[in-house]
Every structure is written in structure tokens, then in C-alpha cells.
């Protein structure tokens, strides 16, 4: 564990709290992509299946439980509690285009051709692109509530912070995980446009609006 990874994980935690807070205070999941949230549940379940056979640390254990539980809870909020506030007609990204390639890639590029190992790899590839339905929705509507942009910024910061973590681990532990690194770089790259608008507009006190 190093500072970058810890800050990354805390940022990830924060993003989830911000999202739940947004849904509960506005009593609405408007502007949130159900598809992206469903992909995150898939990612966490596929990756954290190792809860059953690999012990890493108490920290790791509780974080995994939290990520699975909170992501399922968010789906519940969107699907049942605040269902009428979700508009499926603007959440139309075809997730098959993300899940399909993630399955194929994980079968080809993995460290070991074993079921749980392939699930782990699949989760890494899927997570890299899971934000796309959300970004696509943002693009379509052209605007977002400020709180939603804070959620996205915290989520993007989490992956961005993992990059210095990998550099640090390379030098201090001689650990290199090319699958995680390549997917992580792609994932962080997807946020660049968003970050640009976030820093130049939202953090200057303006509303998040994309040019028409």
C-alpha cells in the first residue's frame, strides 16, 4: 500500500458516497446511467470473487465488500426506489459493445487460462470502458448537475491516482501488472475531455454545459 493507491481508493469511496448522496437528496437518479452502474456491479462481482479463496488484508476485504454492496444498493435505488426518475430513452448505449469485446479480450490476453483469472481480467477490461454509457448520456444531454460532475471527477481521480501508484510500485516493489496498467491508462484517458470541462467550468463555479 502506498499513498497514491490509498488516495485512489479513498477517492473511489468518496465517489460512491457522492452518488448515493445525490440520489437521496435530490430524490432522483436523473442524469445517472443505469447501464454504467450495472456494469460496475458486474465488474465488482467478477473481480472480487476471490473473496472466497484469497485473503489479502482486512482493508482489502472490507473495501471489496463495500464496493459490491454499495453498487448493488445503487442499482436498487435506481431500479425500484427512484425508478420513475430514470429516463431509459437517454440511456441507450449498447452495453453489448463493451461486454462482448471485454469477454473476447480477456480470453486472449490474460496471465493464466483459468476461470477466476479470466474473470479478473474481464473485470479489468470491462471497468476500463464501463463509464462510457454515462459519458455518452452526458454528451447527449449536454449538461449535468454539479453533484453528478463531482461524482464523475472523484471516480476519474481514483483511476488517475492508480497510475502514480503503478510507477511507485515498479520502483519500490518491482511489481508490474501490464493488464491493469494498459486498461487503467485507457480508463483514465476516457475522462480527459470530462476533466477539461470540469476544471475549466465546474471548479470555476459555472454549470457543467457542453458547447452545443
Amino acid at each position: 500500500m502506498n499513498l497514491f493507491r490509498l488516495l485512489g481508493d479513498l477517492s473511489h469511496l468518496a465517489s460512491i458516497f457522492i452518488l448515493i448522496h445525490k440520489i437521496q437528496t435530490t430524490r432522483s437518479c436523473r442524469g445517472i446511467s443505469f447501464q454504467t452502474q450495472a456494469l460496475y456491479v458486474t465488474v465488482f462481482v467478477a473481480r472480487y470473487i476471490d473473496l472466497f479463496f484469497r485473503w489479502i488484508s482486512l482493508y482489502n476485504f472490507f473495501m471489496k465488500i463495500f464496493f459490491i454492496a454499495s453498487s448493488v444498493y445503487i442499482l436498487y435505488l435506481m431500479k425500484y426506489r427512484y425508478r420513475p426518475t430514470h429516463d431509459p430513452s437517454i440511456d441507450t448505449f449498447k452495453v453489448e459493445y463493451l461486454v462482448g469485446p471485454a469477454v473476447v479480450l480477456s480470453l486472449i490476453f490474460n496471465y493464466k487460462f483459468e476461470f477466476t483469472e479470466i474473470l479478473w481480467t474481464f473485470s479489468i477490461y470491462l471497468e476500463a470502458v464501463a463509464i462510457l454509457p454515462q459519458l455518452f448520456m452526458l454528451q447527449r444531454t449536454g449538461e449535468a448537475e454539479t453533484i453528478t460532475t463531482h461524482y464523475l471527477a472523484a471516480l476519474g481521480a481514483y483511476r488517475a491516482l492508480y497510475i502514480p501508484n503503478w510507477i511507485y510500485r515498479y520502483f519500490t516493489e518491482d511489481v508490474v501488472d501490464p493488464i491493469a496498467i494498459v486498461a487503467g491508462l485507457v480508463q483514465t484517458g476516457l475522462y480527459l475531455d470530462f476533466f477539461y470541462v470540469y476544471f475549466t467550468k465546474v471548479l470555476q463555479g459555472q454549470k457543467f454545459e457542453l458547447p452545443a
Binding site: 481508493d9 484469497r54 489479502i56 482489502n60 493464466k112 492508480y162 501508484n165
Partner: peptide, 10 residues
């Protein structure tokens, strides 16, 4: 070695 690849990140 099971833990060779680590997977100790979240």
C-alpha cells in the same frame, strides 16, 4: 504460485 500476479489492488 497463486499470488504471483498479486491482484492485491481493488
Amino acid at each position: 504460485d497463486d499470488d504471483y500476479y498479486g491482484h492485491d489492488e481493488l
